[in-house]
Design a protein around this nucleic acid. Structure first.
Ligand SMILES: [Zn+2]
Ligand SMILES: [Zn+2]
Ligand SMILES: [Zn+2]
Ligand SMILES: [Zn+2]
Lengths: 133, 133
DNA sequence: CCCACAAATGTTACGTTATAACATGCCAAA
DNA sequence: TTTGGCATGTTATAACGTAACATTTGTGGG
């Protein structure tokens, strides 16, 4: 199925942003295009998330455009820079294996997983070091 | 430092619960003991979390009593049963090893991490199978 | 004992995030 | 053209979280 106009606009807004946006931030940016209520944003985000085009970052209550979905199999993870907001989405193949071991020992049938790493990206770490005394 | 009365009551409430509780759920249960406003709960939760006695589950906006802190070193993870709410806290010994490829290619100085797995616990999986047609 | 100070607690108000419920408009099949 | 679906719009409210300031409590020095 094609994306609706609203979904396209929400997706474009996320695409253009260098950092995750909360639903209300997206709303602000789309007020000028006629959006008025959070429902409209949440509805679009819901559909986009179902299709894997955006992800919700639980630890930020915010949303990001999916990085070009790789063909790799594994668990999705996000590395989030707390300084600049940059998010790096990647797949952890072997974590799957490790968690697999844990799940066998503990009988747990896995649905979805949330893996969000907070820290500093390379750029921000460098800035820190150069501004050190 | 000793826990204050409020902290003890919040901790006890979490301890007695078989599933994670939101701050407002805790408040409800403690209304009878004189608690009136969310601030009181959040303050207690803040202190308890600093000491590692409770954890916040980002994907649920809820809090759990820390499982007896093991001596193991590593990153904390949670397996959450979406049916019964049971939470199993465990340690991923060396996350770095599993993030291997990504870590090598990406400089990222890790601060805190959120790992929350959703699915079904052993008990609930069994129930499913016995109630199958 | 009494004051001064700090820490904990109480109270009110507000900000942010998310959903429920119902109304309206749009398009395509019968 | 009617009708049924689904996307959209609109209003209201629920759920989660914090800021700011008042009050109490407990402790050590005078
Ligand atoms: Zn993705
Ligand atoms: Zn950065
Ligand atoms: Zn713990
Ligand atoms: Zn269960």
């Amino acid at each position: 199925m094609q994306l609706t106009t609203n979904q396209q606009r929400v997706l474009a807004t996320l695409q253009q942003s260098s950092r995750p946006l909360s639903a209300y931030k997206i709303l602000e940016r789309l007020k000028s295009e006629g959006f008025k209520a959070p429902t409209q944003i949440y509805r679009a985000l819901g559909c986009l998330a179902e299709r894997g085009l955006v992800h919700r970052l639980e630890s930020l209550n915010a949303y990001v455009r999916c990085a070009p979905p790789s063909t790799e199999q594994g668990v999705r993870a996000f590395a989030i820079c707390d300084s600049c907001g940059h998010v790096d989405e990647f797949i952890v193949p072997s974590l799957n294996r490790y968690l697999g071991t844990w799940m066998k020992q503990n009988v747990f049938s896995l649905g979805s997983s949330t893996i969000e790493l907070h820290g500093k990206c390379a750029t921000c770490s460098k800035l820190d070091r150069t501004s050190d005394s």
